[in-house]
Design a protein around this nucleic acid. Structure first.
Lengths: 123, 123
DNA sequence: CATTGTTACTTATTATCTGTAAGCTAAGTA
DNA sequence: TACTTAGCTTACAGATAATAAGTAACAATG
């Protein structure tokens, strides 16, 4: 009674390939998306392109510096694209690439889990 | 054209409740699971209960100290249970609670994403 | 022309967290 | 008593994050 969880889906598990160690590719993903603030940034961008300051104020505790750092990391990883806006007060708009948008399923799954188990939020 | 992604699933998005800020409960979850090593630990426990040292060696870069720290955090959060084994060389076995096992869907979704987009792993 | 305001960052400093290695405890064995 | 195994715990250097201030480009204001 150790191995297979009785999920109704027919898909085989993808994070349990190697016997004794954590799946390397999954681990890579969790270290990228799981890095502080990154999950929040991606979930905000999932609604559509936004500008830097909007992003900063959308994630309460996050500083401008860390937001800039994480956006650059996400850009390097190919999840986020950056576009300079021509308007008078200049501006930079960030958006998810195809790879970034494809994270939606994972984010929604985590969101649903959170609503199931973390509802009594105490902060 | 900013709001709704054209997903075929009938479920409404759960991480886009409030208009200008990140969903608080989702954020709580991503800060918990996303904390360094936590995602890896949970994915290993998803296969079944394991003992401390097995867990440590299943996640290559993780030290005993951080493993103990994360396990205690996960226990406090109600995702992991701890059981002392009676055997001759003593031992402690960690297992996922119901809440922890329910993370399977989210972990699998992230794993699938990783396999789609991160395949050319270079570390 | 100088002042102020906006947007998007940088830089500097301080606090917190992580990595590495060693030590400690408890149970069992010789 | 000494030694072994398993599971932590402590100590300290180095990496990462938090906080606050500063910079550059432009516009509108006085």
């Amino acid at each position: 009674m150790a191995a297979a969880p009785d999920s109704a889906t027919a898909d085989p598990p993808v994070v349990a390939h190697e016997p004794g160690v954590v799946c390397a590719i999954y681990h890579q993903a969790v270290e990228l998306i799981g890095k502080r603030w990154t999950g929040a940034i991606v979930s905000i961008l999932m609604r559509g392109p936004v500008r830097f300051n909007v992003l900063v104020s959308a994630v309460p505790g996050m500083s401008e510096r860390l937001c800039a750092d994480r956006l650059r990391e996400l850009e390097t990883a190919g999840l986020v694209s950056r576009r300079v806006l021509p308007g008078p007060p200049v501006g930079v708009e960030y958006a998810l690439t195809e790879a970034g948008q494809d994270l939606n399923e994972a984010i929604e799954a985590l969101g649903k889990w959170a609503h199931r188990w973390l509802e009594p939020v105490r902060v």
